[in-house]
Protein backbone atom coordinates (compact mmCIF):
# COMPACT_ATOMS: atom_id res chain seq x y z
CA UNK A 1 0.00 0.00 0.00
CA UNK A 2 1.34 3.43 -0.93
CA UNK A 3 0.95 6.48 1.27
CA UNK A 4 2.33 9.81 0.06
CA UNK A 5 5.68 10.93 1.45
CA UNK A 6 5.57 13.56 4.16
CA UNK A 7 7.60 16.72 3.64
CA UNK A 8 6.88 18.48 6.93
CA UNK A 9 4.93 16.42 9.40
CA UNK A 10 4.80 13.69 12.01
CA UNK A 11 4.84 9.91 11.93
CA UNK A 12 3.52 8.18 15.00
CA UNK A 13 4.98 4.71 14.71
CA UNK A 14 4.92 1.43 16.64
CA UNK A 15 1.35 1.90 17.80
CA UNK A 16 0.08 -1.47 19.08
CA UNK A 17 -1.95 -3.07 16.29
CA UNK A 18 -5.63 -2.21 16.62
CA UNK A 19 -5.11 0.92 18.73
CA UNK A 20 -4.45 3.38 15.93
CA UNK A 21 -8.07 4.47 15.64
CA UNK A 22 -8.30 4.92 19.41
CA UNK A 23 -5.28 7.20 19.27
CA UNK A 24 -6.74 9.02 16.25
CA UNK A 25 -9.79 9.83 18.35
CA UNK A 26 -7.86 10.72 21.52
CA UNK A 27 -5.62 13.12 19.56
CA UNK A 28 -8.67 14.57 17.78
CA UNK A 29 -6.99 14.17 14.43
CA UNK A 30 -10.41 14.34 12.75
CA UNK A 31 -10.32 18.07 13.49
CA UNK A 32 -7.20 18.66 11.41
CA UNK A 33 -7.48 20.06 7.89
CA UNK A 34 -4.20 18.50 6.69
CA UNK A 35 -3.81 14.98 5.30
CA UNK A 36 -3.83 12.25 7.92
CA UNK A 37 -3.28 8.56 7.22
CA UNK A 38 -3.95 5.66 9.53
CA UNK A 39 -2.20 2.48 8.51
CA UNK A 40 -3.48 -0.60 10.26
CA UNK A 41 -1.70 -3.90 10.72
CA UNK A 42 1.56 -2.84 9.11
CA UNK A 43 4.31 -5.46 9.41
CA UNK A 44 6.53 -4.99 12.48
CA UNK A 45 9.76 -6.79 13.34
CA UNK A 46 9.21 -6.39 17.08
CA UNK A 47 5.49 -7.01 17.36
CA UNK A 48 4.47 -8.77 14.17
CA UNK A 49 1.90 -6.06 13.44
CA UNK A 50 1.60 -2.40 14.28
CA UNK A 51 -0.46 0.67 13.43
CA UNK A 52 1.02 3.90 12.09
CA UNK A 53 -0.38 7.43 11.95
CA UNK A 54 1.03 9.90 9.41
CA UNK A 55 0.16 13.56 9.80
CA UNK A 56 1.11 15.94 7.03
CA UNK A 57 1.74 18.88 9.36
CA UNK A 58 3.78 19.55 12.48
CA UNK A 59 1.26 19.84 15.27
CA UNK A 60 1.46 19.90 19.10
CA UNK A 61 1.05 16.35 20.31
CA UNK A 62 -0.10 15.24 23.73
CA UNK A 63 2.92 13.09 24.64
CA UNK A 64 1.35 12.05 27.95
CA UNK A 65 -1.48 10.53 26.01
CA UNK A 66 0.87 8.70 23.64
CA UNK A 67 2.86 7.37 26.60
CA UNK A 68 -0.34 6.24 28.26
CA UNK A 69 -1.53 4.33 25.19
CA UNK A 70 1.86 2.62 24.90
CA UNK A 71 5.32 3.83 25.94
CA UNK A 72 6.72 1.81 23.01
CA UNK A 73 5.25 4.32 20.53
CA UNK A 74 7.75 6.49 18.68
CA UNK A 75 7.25 9.90 17.11
CA UNK A 76 9.28 10.95 14.07
CA UNK A 77 9.41 14.63 13.23
CA UNK A 78 9.87 15.14 9.50
CA UNK A 79 11.16 18.37 8.00
CA UNK A 80 12.02 18.85 4.36
CA UNK A 81 11.27 15.20 3.73
CA UNK A 82 13.86 14.03 6.28
CA UNK A 83 13.52 12.74 9.84
CA UNK A 84 15.05 15.38 12.07
CA UNK A 85 13.99 13.99 15.44
CA UNK A 86 12.86 10.69 16.93
CA UNK A 87 10.96 11.02 20.20
CA UNK A 88 9.99 8.37 22.75
CA UNK A 89 6.96 9.26 24.88
CA UNK A 90 7.15 8.06 28.50
CA UNK A 91 4.50 6.65 30.74
CA UNK A 92 3.06 9.86 32.27
CA UNK A 93 2.71 10.34 36.04
CA UNK A 94 -0.69 11.99 35.54
CA UNK A 95 -3.16 11.75 32.70
CA UNK A 96 -5.93 14.34 32.37
CA UNK A 97 -9.20 14.30 30.47
CA UNK A 98 -8.47 11.16 28.46
CA UNK A 99 -9.78 8.22 30.44
CA UNK A 100 -12.95 8.39 32.47
CA UNK A 101 -13.67 7.01 35.91
CA UNK A 102 -16.21 4.20 35.76
CA UNK A 103 -16.96 4.11 39.50
CA UNK A 104 -20.64 5.06 39.82
CA UNK A 105 -19.97 6.34 43.34
CA UNK A 106 -17.19 8.71 42.23
CA UNK A 107 -17.80 12.47 42.49
CA UNK A 108 -16.93 12.78 38.78
CA UNK A 109 -20.11 10.89 37.90
CA UNK A 110 -22.27 13.62 39.41
CA UNK A 111 -20.22 16.76 38.94
CA UNK A 112 -19.99 16.57 35.16
CA UNK A 113 -17.59 19.49 34.70
CA UNK A 114 -14.85 17.94 36.82
CA UNK A 115 -11.82 16.93 34.82
CA UNK A 116 -11.14 13.20 35.03
CA UNK A 117 -7.58 12.85 36.32
CA UNK A 118 -5.66 9.61 36.85
CA UNK A 119 -2.28 9.13 38.46
CA UNK A 120 0.23 6.36 37.90
CA UNK A 121 0.37 4.18 41.02
CA UNK A 122 2.33 1.18 39.70
CA UNK A 123 4.75 1.87 36.85
CA UNK A 124 5.68 -1.78 36.39
CA UNK A 125 2.09 -2.95 36.00
CA UNK A 126 1.00 0.33 34.38
CA UNK A 127 -1.75 0.92 36.92
CA UNK A 128 -3.55 4.25 36.89
CA UNK A 129 -6.04 5.25 39.58
CA UNK A 130 -8.61 8.04 39.71
CA UNK A 131 -7.23 10.83 41.92
CA UNK A 132 -10.66 11.28 43.51
CA UNK A 133 -11.82 7.75 44.33
CA UNK A 134 -8.71 5.59 43.68
CA UNK A 135 -10.60 3.36 41.25
CA UNK A 136 -8.27 1.59 38.83
CA UNK A 137 -8.51 2.68 35.19
CA UNK A 138 -9.59 -0.06 32.80
Amino acid sequence: MLIGTIVDGIVIDHIPAGRGMELYKYLELDKLSCEVALIKNAPSEKRGKKDILKINDIIDLNFDLLGYVDPGITVDIIRGGKRVEKLHPELPEVIRGVIHCKNPRCITQVEQELEHVFRLTDREKKVYRCIYCDTRAK
Partner: peptide
Protein backbone atom coordinates in the same frame (compact mmCIF):
# COMPACT_ATOMS: atom_id res chain seq x y z
CA UNK B 1 -21.72 10.23 50.14
CA UNK B 2 -19.69 10.40 46.91
CA UNK B 3 -16.11 9.17 46.80
CA UNK B 4 -13.57 11.90 46.15
CA UNK B 5 -15.76 14.88 47.12
CA UNK B 6 -13.35 16.03 49.89
CA UNK B 7 -10.48 15.81 47.38
CA UNK B 8 -12.41 18.14 45.07
Amino acid sequence: PLEGAPMV
